[in-house]
């Protein structure tokens, strides 16, 4: 077998016609970082999802796994099969193929905003000069976009929190934020899939667990999907939590065609 000489890539830039510039950077000896030099938005999200799909379709013989974030993808590859510069070229060329429309799901997650679960709702509403009711309405109105999963297993990074609800994280993080807690931190909102320390402001709780280590896949909500929060009563929360009914079905599917 041909021996592959390791190559260290620092900021190799590839330009594609009519596209943003992509830069490639070796994160370590077997992980290549693809970085987009553009701001976080819906178009970039779908460009990242398309790129990951193209890598898995075309380069599965050399790529072991990929994991995305807001403006980049980490590509873990087999350095015995391909060198970093050859991989960067291969990724660039498989992106040249015409894009096909991609199908995504829309999910509705029940959230109980009652003070039983929302230790920070009142202080946060006060700080934002809103009534708790208005805050709840503003939080449950938008359709959020799933950018990627990180921080904790099954923690969704959601885009779309209204500017009026942005609020700095707590200076001193709480020791334990409950499993299912729905919280706001900076310009982001999210759901803690398990108990964890954290500095976000807790405004509610979702009784449905959508991350299951035994599930195939472990999380059915994927980057590119849309999420909506549906305000529920304490009784409904109790009922859903008791049923432990983790079967979550999308309320809709949609296509993205760029």
């Amino acid at each position: 077998m041909e021996t592959i000489q390791p190559v260290w890539l620092s900021q190799s830039i590839y330009t594609r016609p009519n596209m943003d510039k992509l830069s490639f950077h070796s994160l370590n000896a077997d992980t290549l970082l693809i970085q987009w030099n553009s701001s976080v938005d819906q178009n970039l999200l779908y460009e990242i999802v398309h790129t990951e799909n193209a890598i898995h379709e075309n380069l599965s013989d050399v790529v072991l796994e990929t994991y995305p974030a807001y403006t980049s993808i980490a590509v873990h590859y087999n350095p015995q099969r391909i060198a970093a510069n050859a991989l960067a070229k291969a990724i660039t060329s498989c992106l040249a193929a015409p894009k096909r429309p991609m199908t995504f799901s829309e999910w509705q997650l029940p959230v109980c905003y009652d003070s039983t679960f929302a230790s920070d709702l009142e202080p946060l509403a006060k700080a934002k000069n809103l009534t708790p009711e208005t805050l709840i309405q503003k939080h449950s109105e938008p359709t959020y976009l799933v950018h990627f999963i990180g921080f904790l297993p099954g923690f969704l990074y959601l885009g779309g929190l209204p500017d009026t609800l942005h609020h700095p994280r707590k200076a001193t993080p709480d020791r334990a934020i409950a499993s299912g807690a729905v919280a706001i931190g900076g310009s982001q909102t999210g759901i803690y899939p398990m108990e964890s320390p954290g500095g976000w402001h807790v405004i509610g709780n979702c009784p449905i667990s959508f991350f299951n280590p035994q599930g195939k896949p472990p999380c059915r909500i994927r980057p590119g999907d849309r999420v909506r929060f549906q305000a529920i009563s304490v009784e409904t929360h109790r009922k859903l939590a008791r049923e432990k009914n983790d079967v979550l079905n999308p309320i809709d599917t949609f296509q993205w065609d760029s």
């Binding site: 072991l64 796994e65 873990h76 991350f211």
Partner: peptide
């Protein structure tokens, strides 16, 4: 645990 970092799993 390779292959699950896309789900946030270390």
């Amino acid at each position: 645990r390779y292959g699950y970092r896309r789900y946030g799993v270390p």
